[in-house]
């Protein structure tokens, strides 16, 4: 049994899986990419802009890993720098100003880990997104399409609806990192993957996500058509909801399991 979650981790990391840009190009029309955080730089690990979903305009933001070695290196393997999170926040605020819903595609092994990222406030950038997203006055839907690596993924997933592809994973730490810290042995990643409860099924049972999207015909037209329809239907319902922000608060407020000790 312990093998299975780690097999899903491997699938979620497969470089041939559709990436953020594949979803943008196949689900939306008229995508116009908007670059830069207006503070320091443009982060290629996060792609964002305006797009049309059937008859409405939306702001779409996606983490992009790339497929080829060259693309992956240019995209920093989908590990965003603080500038990526700040660009995402800028576009979300812009969406709020113009009353557009926000759709996020999450796929990262984690926020970029390096000297520059720390110097420019990786922790602060993620924290600010968590805070600001919690009160964004437009509908937000986040879909985890591959790896949902810790705080770096959550920074684009404080949403009204969070969905996961059936072979995506979502975790507080990589199985390798967990095994190396707990058991001083990164080779015990398979065991750690089972303990961490990181599959879509686990996340649904724990009340972390609302829906699992099946991967039938992954990357083909019917697959994207299904997601487009699901997004349009969900936005329809969310746009009518006058209590969007309080409900988003409650959505996260109830997560956690504690005991009362007298």
């Amino acid at each position: 049994m312990n093998q299975i979650p780690y097999a899903v981790v491997k699938l979620a990391r497969d470089s041939q899986r559709p990436t953020g840009l594949d979803y943008i190009q196949n689900i939306f029309a008229d995508f116009i990419e908007l670059h830069g955080d207006r503070r320091y730089a443009d982060d290629p690990a996060i792609v964002g802009g305006l797009a049309r979903l059937q008859d409405r305009y939306v702001t779409v933001i996606a983490m992009e890993k790339g497929h080829t070695a060259k693309q992956r290196s240019c995209r920093n393997f989908g590990a965003p720098h603080p500038e990526g999170y700040r660009k995402a926040l800028r576009l979300m605020k812009q969406a709020e100003k113009f009353g557009r819903p926000v759709i996020c595609f999450v796929d990262t092994s984690g926020a970029s880990c390096g000297i520059g990222a720390e110097e420019r406030g990786q922790g602060q950038a993620i924290a600010e997104n968590l805070m600001e997203l919690s009160t964004l006055c437009v509908p937000v839907i986040s879909i985890l399409i591959g790896e949902g690596g810790s705080g770096g993924a959550l920074a684009l997933a404080v949403a009204d609806r969070v969905w996961m592809l059936s072979n995506a994973v979502y975790s507080v730490i990589s199985p390798e990192g967990c095994a190396s810290i707990l058991w001083k042995d990164s080779k015990k990643a398979e065991e750690a993957a089972a303990c961490l409860k990181l599959t879509a099924g686990d996340a649904l049972r724990l009340g972390i996500i609302e829906r699992i999207l099946p991967e039938t015909e992954l990357g083909e037209k019917p697959f994207y058509d299904r997601i487009r329809r699901a997004l349009a239907e969900e936005l329809e319902a969310l746009e009518k909801d006058p209590d969007l922000v309080p409900k988003r608060y409650d959505r996260f407020r109830r997560i956690g399991q504690v005991k009362e000790r007298t």
Partner: peptide, 22 residues
């Protein structure tokens, strides 16, 4: 985050941030 509580720990980041924002 406390990794022994997996995703439930991760979600506390969002939960606490929302409370700070309010």
């Amino acid at each position: 985050a406390r990794m022994q509580e997996g995703l439930l720990s991760l979600m506390q980041m969002a939960k606490t941030s929302a409370a700070v924002k309010r």
